[in-house]
Nucleic acid binder design. Structure first.
Ligand SMILES: [Mn+2]
Ligand SMILES: [Mn+2]
Ligand SMILES: [Zn+2]
Ligand SMILES: [Zn+2]
Lengths: 149, 149
DNA sequence: CCTTTGTTGCGACTGTGTCTCAATTGCAAT
DNA sequence: ATTGCAATTGAGACACAGTCGCAACAAAGG
């Protein structure tokens, strides 16, 4: 279980599904994309590269990639579900600039630990979590300062 | 600025908007509803009570209530935006059971503080944040245990 | 009373995401 | 290699939350 292809294949086989050429291409493309992407961005990218894969197939494949543990659903940007790779990346949370859209990733062990404690207190078995902090990034703040001075 | 009516009215006036009868009714209904609700639930409730308020008006009013600081957009449950009151309630985060849908609210000061630190490190000015932990609640876990024994 | 500006309801529209279905493919057993 | 069969695909229709355009309406001020 070292490469992403193997991992995806194993997942599919275990569920009686097939590692089709379409799924192979989608897998490749997902991992050549920038970190945060959504279904239609992926579809567009494939379309431009003349890989004839239907929109339905793209939409159908993403949940499989999530289930197999290769990608994860992250933020919802303006009503679109956004994904990012987790194979080879470790978990992190996000700061999202509501002015320029910049996404800053961070990881804070203490917060992660405290979440575990909260779950224990409530006898809750966590599967995943998402922490998103929305506000203004440093660039947007300094630009705002320059203007007002 | 004590009652929610005053707060909403102040917000509206300040923006040159009006505290219309429809908005008054919507405000009342929002605060008589259970904590987490979405736009169409609110519309249905009003409809059943024979308050003739159009769907568009409901959808147009919710962002105003958010802007005025009376409610907040929380989780997105199955592609629907979900809101909850914050006037008279303090901020908290959520444990969401992916089996039964139960929502458990919690507040952890340490996590809140650590988030502030993270923001400071990145020169990020937070406006709001959302932490949602998805998993299995105590009830669903104990039911699963009973079955397997 | 008249004008201005915001508001409402209605229904048409948009955009994500899902589903149906006939045709095709992959795969394993003959 | 051939067959049988479930899984898969593409195309387009569909579902549905949310938005928009517009004409009629209401509040407020002169
Ligand atoms: Mn990320
Ligand atoms: Mn809550
Ligand atoms: Zn920014
Ligand atoms: Zn539960």
């Amino acid at each position: 279980m070292s490469t992403k292809e193997e991992k995806f294949n194993n997942y599919l086989r275990a569920k009686g599904l097939k590692f089709t050429p379409e799924r192979k291409i989608i897998l490749q493309e997902v991992f050549s994309l920038r970190k945060h992407f959504n279904a239609d961005q992926l579809f567009e990218k494939l379309h431009k590269k003349n890989r004839q894969i239907s929109r339905a197939t793209v939409y159908r494949s993403l949940p499989l990639l999530v289930e197999s543990g290769l990608i994860v659903e992250t933020l919802r940007c303006q009503s679109k579900v956004s994904y990012e790779q987790i194979f080879g990346h470790k978990h992190h949370d996000h700061l999202v600039c509501i002015k320029c859209g910049r996404i800053i990733e961070f990881r804070n062990e203490k917060i992660e630990k405290l979440q575990e404690e909260v779950c224990k207190e409530h006898n809750f078995k966590a599967v995943e979590h998402r922490l998103g902090i929305r506000g203004y990034c440093s660039r947007c703040l300094s630009r705002a300062n320059k203007k007002s001075s």
